[in-house]
Amino acid sequence: MTQTLGGGETVVFWVLGPIALAGALGMVLSRNAVHSALWLVNTMLSFGVFYVVQEAPFLGAVQIIVYTGAIMILFLFVLMLVGRDSSDSVVETLRGQRIAAIILGIGFAGLVGAGIAEATRDLPVTGLDGAQGGAGNIPAIAELLFTRYLLAFEVTSALLITAAVGAMVLAHIEREPGSRRSQKELSRARFLTDRPGTLPGPGVFARADSVAVPAILPDGRPAEDSLATGLEPQEPDQMPRPTGREQLGSPDAALGTLDPAPLDPAARDGGDR
């Protein structure tokens, strides 16, 4: 019984093996979750080819269609729902976690790889021709599935149904009937507050667009609530400006049409208006 594989398969392995490896490493190492998913797709496609090469064409097809096609798309859906840009920070918060994981991983891989290599040094390549009886891969799987593994197969169907129901229960948002407020109610509630309109963004009607500069209300007062809490309100004139701006002069000067709006409402009230 032979132990070595054919030349074509060797070529396929040595081409797709590194690709699968790169896909796995890329998935773990890329900060963007979408990239991770795409790297994983890479690996899974390689696996599909491996299955086909290893006399499991049905599994290869399932791998590509179900895994790569359905499950990975499901991952991408969820990623889009959760927020595509929620990338991990590089800083590891658990002390020693990364180091310990890498050391353990290398040790584990070394142990498993060495152990398997040692244990399967003389592994024969029996091939599935005898087991399949010339009927082909799919009939052989079907026969086993519906005879010896029938019970497991049926239980699996129950598992899938349970999983589907469970996913629906978990993802469903329960709202009490009638708790959804109508537009009229929302608008009435808004007008009962101090500020019916929207909040001004920082720097609106102002001479600078820094977040530290409060917005100016239409009557010229600074809008205190346009600032994020914890920020010290700044005078636009005292803020550092880009050098290019200095050459162009102040925005007021550039516009020329607007009166310089005093920031101090008291000073403005002291005027003759």
Partner: peptide
């Protein structure tokens, strides 16, 4: 090449 390589890759 032998089947061991598949196993090592999987590991």
């Amino acid at each position: 090449m032998t089947l061991t390589w598949y196993l090592v890759l999987a590991a």
